[in-house]
Design a protein around this nucleic acid. Sequence first.
DNA 1: GGTGCCGGTTACTTCAACGGTACCGACCGC
DNA 2: GCGGTCGGTACCGTTGAAGTAACCGGCACC
Lengths: 127, 127
Amino acid sequence: MTRPVPEPLPADFFPADCPVPTVPVLGSRKWAWKIIRCLEGGPRRFSELRVPLVGITAKVLAESLRSMEQDGVVARTAYAENPPRVEYELTPLGRTLLVPMDSLCEWGQEHLGSLLAARLEHERHGG
Amino acid sequence: MTRPVPEPLPADFFPADCPVPTVPVLGSRKWAWKIIRCLEGGPRRFSELRVPLVGITAKVLAESLRSMEQDGVVARTAYAENPPRVEYELTPLGRTLLVPMDSLCEWGQEHLGSLLAARLEHERHGG
DNA sequence: GGTGCCGGTTACTTCAACGGTACCGACCGC
DNA sequence: GCGGTCGGTACCGTTGAAGTAACCGGCACC
């Protein structure tokens, strides 16, 4: 192994169209990925989503859905009925997210425990 | 098409050990994934990392590295030399993150443009 | 003794996401 | 007119990550 960091990293190591920022763009919302999972099986109503998303408030769910609608991954359909009915579903673009999400979930199943354990370890030691 | 949402989602749709929360746990730090990419090729020094991470400040880089060290994905080695030398590298656990990251990057290369375009679209109309 | 390098730290500010509570508008049945 | 359902909005506070700016200790070089 005579390959101990051959060359330094250049300032343009990340090109302008680099997809790495994808992760923080997508991952910043706490509930977004759970919502995507809930919509995987078909359209769901607002109050129907609140059942599996234990602990979410109406406000946060509405905010998350609006932002996902804005991103084009979720479609909102309001029916002029009474009582009101609103359905949310994944767009084709939203469905494409299932692939990387599965990959992340697979990682989580194998390694998330180690990571959280290490995090708790340091919390105990460092205070 | 007689399958329009057959059954409602149960309250325990997400099991306690569900890996979906992996995403916000990992994705919350803006620079973490870029740092991982920088360390992919081998150990790097603190100031060496600042070159490709255009715009990061020493404080944020130090914070990010500490938190990643705490999570067990990065290892820090300080050498008692002068001027001081500190090297950071991926742990085996950190290397396992390259797989889901590649998956997300692949998604980003195909679809991140659409998402950002949709986001800007709504900013113009609604903003 | 002054300057610079390296790898930081500290204090302060800003900002987005989250959480909690309260309330709304329409229409129904009583 | 009263309450209930559905799908929200308004207001307010908290938190955690990011950004800005200033400074530090140790040594080497001049």
